[in-house]
Amino acid sequence: MSVPILELVDVTAAYGRIEVLRGVNLSIPRGAVMALLGPNGAGKSTLVKVISGQKESTGGDVHLGGVNVRNADPEELARLGLCTVPEGRSVFPNLTVEENLSLMSYAGVSAEAVLETAYAYFPRLAERRRQLAGTMSGGEQQMLAMSRALASDPALLLLDELSMGLAPLIVDELYDTVQQIAESGVSILCIEQFARTALRVSDYAAVMSGGRVVATGEPDEVLETMSDVILGGAA
């Protein structure tokens, strides 16, 4: 078997004295889609920040495509082919759609190619190319953010709470896009609170709780665990 695209070994991280990650181990095979689930405060977002270089880890190793990239700068990682779509606002609200797209060319693809791919995939963005990104709906903003993954053919796509604050039908649409990106062979780690939505497109799933990965496996098996963790054993 080839080298995993992402491998985390005993990763720890803390805010001051508060330990948020307590030794995370996770491995994503090349070309696979993994859903990372877990309740609020489990450390999912912190883990994304550590992988994307936004937060320094206090211990452990992060291997991207077999290279140890522990505590590399986010801009270096981005140029290495890591495409991170952070939670919340993931576009520049005071830039037009076209300007947002032109900034995606840092990953090594020409600006024209980015525009071409994005508009071909999301005609709605082409209609709004001169509009400020911040004035678009949340779903359209996420489409814009996803264009980066579509256009730049990343080594690994990191999606953090893609669905946050979005209505279910929009979320479904976005996950259709995720599926297509996955089918083109891109490896994806997707952090999601809506377990079922994410599991629909995943090959594997992992559950985090209390700063550790507590379960990994096939999507179906994991869903049971999830219900317990999130709804307090109720659902």
Binding site: Q54, P74, R79, P86, F92, N94, M104
Partner: peptide, 14 residues
């Protein structure tokens, strides 16, 4: 201008 909006995000873009 992007850096005015969100320098952290700019880093993620490379």
């Amino acid at each position: 201008r992007a850096s005015v909006d969100n320098p952290e995000l700019l880093k993620l873009y490379g």
